[in-house]
Design a protein around this nucleic acid. Structure first.
Lengths: 242, 242
DNA sequence: GCAATAGTGTCTCTTAGACACTATGGT
DNA sequence: ACCATAGTGTCTAAGAGACACTATTGC
């Protein structure tokens, strides 16, 4: 009864007649980011077609009987790929035109999600792809690369003036981990000084009292202060012309 | 042949069966802002129903045969209401759930547009409504008030760190007009000093050489520098906690 | 001791924002 | 002269960003 995930990718063929009276082929596509070994990555799925295999974004359709809202659809689709619920989920844009799907007019609501770095299980056919400067390390099917590009742009912007960097980190982290988030996304990072001021003065971090030890001076471990209301900062790299 | 605008508002009735295989009732709703007498206003349409009349946002359906993209749909819908093309148009959000339309699952792509203050013709059944602090001066039908709220929030944010304020002004304007834009949207304004620095140093304005005269010292008239790439600023009122 | 990373002190530059001041028109 | 609005000079506070410095661990 419920539409299956696979249906978002049936083979081409003119079926414009399905689109009438304000209805269209609708799908929800997810760009799920994580940080892994100081590399920004997105979650993709290996899809096997008669003509070979390709990488696609997790996506699917609205299930009107189960999804109360578009956000619910996005969350449900994400749960198919991982048992990990996202620390952050945001709608990026809705794209609709007659080009992106050969079947005719189609409409996609694009979300991006951030996973914190805690361990999690992922479905077997999932694959993580490095993302550098908004480009994926391997090609994606359909227009999915441009969707990644858009989501990445949004992330890149938001990272510079909000508290999102900490959503990519595990429950406990160290200040230099935040620096790594900046580096992974912007390919550069503000100095520790600026990061400290921003996140500590903003009250976004809670000192756990514990330390991370290594072959050097131990670093204090922090947790995200979930009580802190979303706070905004001056955008980074404004004076230095980026 | 082409679906008419009116169809976005046929009377309620359970028609869930139309929603299948990833299709749903889709509409595009517009929140069109303008500045009039130093007041922020939105464009609404008087809709007469059997049970009286109500105010609604301009909205309609995608016409797959005419609209190349969602943006095209938004522009087409706007052209029905005014001969004035918007100086700025941006997608705000897509809302989909089972509550907002009594017919079942529905989906709306919300855009907001800015009209510059030049004179224009508007359709006869259109009506401008003051918007103060995101609230419309008169109630709107459906969930349209909340759509206005969302669009207004976006506008309010953007006004603080981008060049959008000038998109609400006519072709030629004066620095204090920019101040009025801030006041209309934020209910306060940075001092002239800050506005001058921001917009002039940013190269966003071109001195026309002409002056606006009144019963006081004349003010220099500027035009928006359309060549200037979209530039970003530090957000206003960050230190003063808004 | 040394290497390595954590974290601080402090300076410069830019911008926001306040506010008093001057400038220039009309009447 | 006086009013009204345009526009400037200049100061303060805060943050970004640079960078040299100190701190604390393992080895």
């Amino acid at each position: 009864m419920a539409p299956s995930l696979k249906e978002s990718s049936t083979k081409p063929g003119k079926r414009n007649n399905r689109m009438h009276l304000g209805t269209a082929l609708i799908s929800v596509d997810l760009v799920v980011f994580r940080l892994h070994d100081e590399q920004l990555q997105i979650l993709t799925r290996k899809k096997t077609t008669p003509s070979g295999s390709a990488l696609v974004l997790p996506s699917g359709r609205i299930e009107p009987d189960h999804d109360d809202s578009l956000d619910a659809t996005a969350k449900r689709l994400l749960s198919y790929a991982t048992n990990h619920s996202p620390s952050y989920l945001e709608q990026v844009v809705t794209i609709g035109d007659s080009n992106r799907d050969s079947r005719g007019w189609s409409l996609t609501v694009v979300y991006y999600g951030l996973l914190n770095g805690n361990e999690a299980d992922y479905s077997d056919d999932s694959q993580w792809l490095n993302v550098t400067a908004g480009k994926t390390a391997a090609p994606l099917a359909y227009d999915h690369e441009s969707l990644v590009q858009e989501a990445w742009l949004r992330l890149k912007n938001k990272v510079q003036y909000s508290s999102v960097p900490i959503y990519l980190l595990p429950d406990e982290f160290v200040l230099s981990d935040i620096k790594k988030v900046f580096s992974a996304i912007l390919e550069k990072s503000p100095p520790m000084r600026s990061i400290r001021n921003r996140f500590l003065k903003g009250g976004l971090l809670i000192d756990t009292g514990r330390l991370r030890r290594g072959s050097n001076r131990p670093a204090t471990l922090y947790t995200a202060n979930r009580a802190a209301e979303t706070c905004l900062f001056n955008r980074l790299y404004l004076s230095t012309q980026e």
